[in-house]
Design a protein around this nucleic acid. Structure first.
Lengths: 157, 157
DNA sequence: CTGCTTGCAAAGTGTTTGCAGGCCC
DNA sequence: GGGCCTGCAAACACTTTGCAAGCAG
């Protein structure tokens, strides 16, 4: 019943996401240091299709820049998320996935299948009615891309 | 003292959720055993207001039925969830919360504040437009109460 | 050179599992 | 009394932290 495997069903490459150059520029602009570890993380995120788990990023980063430590990757991801350069999404029962931030105006949310664990991208605008309702009725500002919506996908039904 | 609080709360309006008796009956009907540990978990869930973390349930269950072990509470919760007697919701970065299942027709989802961590109940019907969209466009069956929606609450903004 | 970042190891969380014994039905 | 449930301890997955050394700016 526990879903540990993370399968990504995303076919489209990283369209709509910022690039490594843009990310590095933002770092410079914010007076943050450009370090090998951070570059590695950004390039890994840029290179992969879709979302990646922390474990995947750790492996691939250490792959391309040997010596990069797990803890460093976590710290880099944390920093990059704080700066808005990277976005993270909480996945039920399987930690967190990361990707480069969306370019302005094309934010997206995630659907997660509770059976097979696959994650599907969803335009954030699909949530706008809900966002409005929640804002009006509860004075609550929804962050639609921050947690995956759970359900069952076509294949698993 | 904690016991007194529990008893007091037990008479409080746990509106919309099934009761302990109903839960026990369902267990019997499904030929599942009624054990002290399971009764303790159900009464704790029934007594508390709103959602409880696994850790809270463990503490309170051990409180009212000394000797109940952590692992047993987890197993009881797992069983009860499988039977649909208890519902669980994944909370970003903080594990899982549990409560007695909703009585038919009054399902609810959850809003979680990413700043203070508080969890707010939300009628599931607020998600029906989204549920429809996702069903029509992605052939994806949403389970709105399975994961909390994240955002920022009034107080934290 | 200053102090933010890193590598390392170890500690934290939250949850699960193997096993022998216990108790519900 | 058979077999599901339990207590225990240990394992598990994921993430964080204290510290001394290292490197970016």
């Amino acid at each position: 019943m526990r879903q540990a495997i993370l399968v990504t069903m995303e076919s489209a490459p990283t369209s709509g996401r910022i690039g490594v150059d843009s990310a590095l520029n933002q770092l410079r602009r914010r007076h943050q240091r450009i370090t090998p570890a951070r570059v590695a993380v950004l390039e890994v995120l840029s290179g992969g299709v879709g979302h990646m788990s922390a474990a995947e990023i750790v492996d691939l980063a250490a792959d391309r820049t040997p010596g990069v430590h797990r803890a460093t990757v976590y710290r880099a991801l944390s920093t990059l998320c704080d700066l808005g350069i990277v976005t993270h999404t909480h996945i039920a029962g399987a930690g967190t996935i990361y990707h480069l931030a969306d370019v302005h105006g094309v934010a997206h949310a995630h659907l997660q299948c509770s059976v097979c664990g696959s994650v599907i991208d969803l335009p954030a605008e699909a949530l706008s009615p809900l966002t409005r309702t929640v804002r009006d009725s509860y004075d609550f500002t929804l962050e639609p891309q921050h947690a995956a919506l759970i359900g069952v996908c076509t294949n698993c039904r």
